[in-house]
Amino acid sequence: MVDEKTVLTGSPLNPPAGGAGPGSLSFGQKLLFQVPGIIIALLLAIGVSYLILDKVNSETEKKLEAAKNELADQNRKLGEDLKKVDAANKKTQEDLAAVKEEAARIEKERQKLADKLVDISKSIEKAVMDFGKFRETTEAVDTTQTKDIAATAKNLNELDTKVHYIEKNIKEKLDALATDINGLKSDTTGIKEAYKVLRADVTKTQEKAEITEKDLADLGDRARLFQLRVLAARAREAAEAARHMDLKTLLSRLDDVEDKK
């Protein structure tokens, strides 16, 4: 190995061209005297460099070794993790398969349920139809029953009305007339006989299960005729009372004309 500096400064064997005197060292001499030092310095420098490099190398190797170890650990850990992941993956796969099976089972169940739902829907639809028919039938029965009841009630009501009509409009009038007949002073034998017959017929009609319009009309006509007889008798007596100025009797007879209130 040749040092470039050394070449530039020359060696004692090869002095510079201008030559130096005897009292001073030439450049070559100087350089010659400095070579051992330089060599030693070089050796020292080389040794120190070697040591430094060795030290650095050693540390680097250590670091490398540590890194290698760390890497190995990491690889190991990674392997373990991969194993775990693999195991987990396997388990996931298994789970997925299970899930798939479950899904398939659920799908089957759903399908079954759907089929059942359809069946139920059909059943409900049928039930609704049946209920509709039942309701229609019930309504028809109800309507018929209501009509029957209404007809019966109407008949009963009509009968009741007729009985009430007889009671209120004929019987009571006849009873009032009977009072008037008893109040008459003239001979009322014929009128009384007619009253008895008419009263009996009224009661008989009233007790009939079915009273016709004709029954009512007949009774009404007979009652009116009877009333006319009584009225005529009363009027005769009242007129007689007027002629004789019997005012008490006259007022009493006049009171008979309208309801005693």
Binding site: Y165, N169, A217, A223, R224, R236
Partner: peptide, 25 residues
């Protein structure tokens, strides 16, 4: 006079409002 009163009375009693029986239905 009494005769007129007798006549009026007879008319009133034969046609008075309370002298009516119910009409047939």
């Amino acid at each position: 006079d009494r005769e007129t009163l007798a006549k009026v009375t007879a008319e009133f009693m034969n046609k008075g409002s309370g002298s009516e029986l119910p009409k047939t239905k």
